[in-house]
Each structure stands twice: as C-alpha cells, then as structure tokens.
C-alpha cells in the first residue's frame, strides 16, 4: 500500500471518530459526564491534528482541550452546585 493510501485511510477513520465524538458531546446532559466526554473529544481532535501533519497544533490542543478546559469547567460546576 502506498503511503498516500495509508494516510488517506487514517485520516478518514479519525475524521469519522471526531464527528461521532462531537455528536456524543452534544447529547450528554449530565454536567460531570460532559467534562469527561469533552476531554476525550479534545484528545480525538489532537490525534486528528497530528494526522494532518500539524504537531504544534496537536500540543496546544492536548494541553488546552484535554486538560486546562475540563479543569476550568469542573471548577465552574463546583461553584454552581447547590449546597447539600
């Protein structure tokens, strides 16, 4: 198999996974579960950027979308939780 064909298959697979991930993020309604699904979506996006030959964007998306953004979301959820 030529390298171009392998790249094509890889890219199509990851694109389908990203589309499925986006649908999953939108369909999740529970807040804490949403944070975890968003983190997984961030990692899928990072893999997609890597397969598109962009390692810089991969680093940014991994650090931000899979770590910093879910942490910010978790802290916000903790702030608006009803005191029990």
């Amino acid at each position: 198999m030529t390298p171009n064909a392998v790249m094509d298959i890889l890219q199509v697979t990851v694109l389908v996974l990203v589309a499925a991930g986006a649908t999953l993020v939108v369909r999740t309604r529970d807040r804490v579960r949403l944070v975890l699904v968003l983190s997984v979506y961030g990692m899928l996006l990072a893999i997609l950027f890597f397969v598109f030959q962009a390692p810089d964007v991969t680093l940014s998306e991994l650090a931000v979308g899979a770590i910093a953004l879910p942490l910010i979301l978790l802290l916000t959820i903790a702030k608006v939780r009803k005191p029990q």
């Binding site: 390692p55 810089d56 680093l59 940014s60 931000v64 910093a68």
Partner: peptide, 14 residues
Amino acid sequence: NPSGGFQGGVILAT
C-alpha cells in the same frame, strides 16, 4: 522543533 510560546506556556501552567 514543534514548540513555541503558546503551548509551552499552557504546559507550564499545567
């Protein structure tokens, strides 16, 4: 290398 201010800063904060 693939590096730079933006991603380095975020990982430092991590």
